[in-house]
């Protein structure tokens, strides 16, 4: 068995667990697009928050298996069914990750501070009424509250504490989440960012954004508009321009 990504027919499922969708595929495509860098990065510890079916963490483990065999993988989800399904998906592909049922990474923050080399997140990002966020079962897979930012906004500061000096975050966002603002907020924490994959469907436009600490950027965390945000903003406007032109696609 030597697949480069998880095989849909081997991905386990459950009525209350999010099935791999366009966003999951786009995230895995982003990891594939960045694979050369990941292989060089040789992450010791990778974490996926909100692992759902296990499609993404399984794919990441398969991609790195041969060249970075000792990576330690941890995957979390607040939905116990999702974590069990992830276990089955991992086993079906002959790879392994440590699984924890928890809210984001609760219980791991203290000891893992500054130790995570790669964090991947396909969060619930759909704009919904605030009271739909974090309910049990399948709704918590997409319900993102106002602007779809409820869970994302909790994850960003946590990612900042958990990531190692050389750590990377790959995050799925929707245009409605205001990704350029997310990048600006991360910039205030000292992170550079890049859109690895952009994908548009009739209803939505997805960006998979990679964040990393940039020594050139001084963390400010002040509520001012960062002077260097122009380049990011223009990145996004360029993509929305593209979106009008064709159906989008990966970079």
């Amino acid at each position: 068995m030597s697949y480069r990504t998880a095989q849909i027919r081997l991905v386990s499922s459950h009525p209350e667990v999010y099935e791999p969708c366009d966003d999951s595929f786009a995230l895995v495509d982003a990891l594939l697009a960045d694979l050369t860098n990941l292989l060089e990065h040789k992450p010791s510890l990778c974490i996926e928050v909100g692992c759902g079916s296990g499609y993404v963490i399984t794919s990441l483990a398969l991609m790195l298996k041969e060249k970075v065999p000792d990576t330690y993988y941890v995957a979390t989800d607040m939905n116990p069914d999702a974590v069990r399904v992830t276990r089955e998906t991992l086993e079906a592909h002959g790879v392994d990750a440590e699984l924890i049922i928890t809210d984001i990474v609760s219980g791991l923050e203290k000891r893992l501070e500054g130790l995570v080399d790669v964090m991947v997140v396909n969060p619930p990002y759909v704009p919904t009424p605030e009271d739909e966020v974090g309910k049990s079962g399948i709704a918590s897979a997409w319900a993102g509250g106002e602007d779809g930012r409820a869970v994302i906004d909790r994850i960003l500061p946590i990612a900042d504490t958990m990531l190692s000096e050389r750590g990377w975050l790959y995050l799925v966002t929707l245009t409605a989440n205001n990704p350029s603002q997310i990048c600006r907020q991360m910039r205030e924490r000292g992170y550079a960012s890049r859109i690895v994959v952009q994908r548009s469907t009739d209803e939505e436009s997805l960006h998979i954004i990679k964040f990393w600490r940039d020594p050139e950027i001084r963390p400010s965390l002040k509520e001012t508009t960062a002077p260097n945000s122009e380049s990011l903003l223009s990145q996004f406007s360029r993509f929305s321009f593209w979106k009008g032109g064709n159906s989008g696609g990966s970079l």
Partner: peptide, 9 residues
């Protein structure tokens, strides 16, 4: 259970 800790509060 089944090797998975449940840390939900």
């Amino acid at each position: 259970n089944k090797g998975i800790p449940n840390m939900l509060l």
